[in-house]
């Protein structure tokens, strides 16, 4: 028996928004410790890694490990049926071929039950090597989304260069070029508005804007985003999901021929 309850269904809606741009279907691996999902996009350029800890749920029970393959388009249809203030409960029996979603309004005046068929997905689990990243940048997530949107007007790729002084985002194409520099913030009132750089060595990497823009669909989940970079390895873009867990995106760089 698996059962997971979230008082705020809005969180699950946001998680789904954050992954459905990159993935059409995915397997949710449920265990005693929580729910995990790891999947690459079709082109194997990016990877989504979602971790929702059992202790972050309002109620959580998982007697046996369970892998639930879901079509994310269909899951989105069902999650759209939940009111913003509803509580959501996901349930499945052991070895079930369906997952149930129950939405309850405040005071339980309205209770809606939906069942979705599960899929058997071939899933390739990837091992991600432990990396000591040369640069870790923490910045407001809305600022990062804005920069990705603005720079993607200029070209398909953007360079991210990080030094002790700051982080520079740049792009160039037919219409011209764009450069945005963010300095490390000296003092800020709110921690989430800060730009903080931890640098061991300067790094400059180039990435496809299209994927970065997809990652920024996670912006509503967190006020801050963390970018981890080292030379010639995939970028990690991480959004915390409150006390519940995190979503991490890995993106392979563009490299010199």
């Amino acid at each position: 028996m698996f059962e997971a309850r979230l008082v705020q269904s809005a969180i699950l809606k946001k998680v789904l928004e954050a992954i459905k741009d990159l993935l059409t279907e995915a397997t949710f691996d449920c265990s005693d410790s929580g729910i995990q999902l790891q999947a690459m996009d079709n082109a194997h350029v990016s990877l989504v890694s979602l971790n929702l800890r059992s202790d972050g749920f309002d109620k959580y029970r998982c007697d046996r490990n369970l892998s639930m393959g879901m079509n994310l388009g269909n899951m989105t249809k069902i999650m759209k049926c939940a009111g913003a203030e509803d509580t959501v409960t996901m349930k499945a029996q052991d070895n079930a071929d369906v997952v149930a979603f129950m939405f309850e309004s405040k005071n339980q005046e309205k209770v809606s039950d939906y069942e979705m068929k599960l899929m058997n997905l071939d899933q390739e689990h990837l091992g991600i090597p432990e990396t000591d990243y040369s640069c870790i940048v923490k910045m407001p997530s809305q600022e990062f989304a804005r920069i990705c949107r603005d720079l993607s007007q200029f070209g398909e790729s953007m360079a991210i260069s990080c030094t002790k002084e700051g982080v520079k985002f740049s792009s160039a194409g037919d219409i011209g070029s764009a450069n945005i520099k963010l300095a490390q913030t000296a003092n800020v009132d709110a921690e989430e508005e800060a730009v903080v750089i931890e640098m061991q060595e300067p790094v400059s990497l180039t990435f496809a804007c299209r994927y970065l823009n997809s990652f920024t669909k996670a912006t509503p989940l967190s006020a801050q985003v963390q970018l981890s970079m080292s030379a010639d390895v995939p970028l990690v873009v991480e959004y915390k999901i409150g006390e519940l867990g995190h979503i991490r995106y890995y993106l392979a760089p563009k490299i010199e021929d």
């Binding site: 194997h44 350029v45 689990h125 990837l126 995939p234 563009k254």
Partner: peptide, 14 residues
């Protein structure tokens, strides 16, 4: 020029 790498060059199958 630069070309897009894939994750298989960095991560390993488990």
């Amino acid at each position: 020029g630069k070309h897009q790498a894939t994750l298989s060059s960095f991560f390993f199958s488990t």
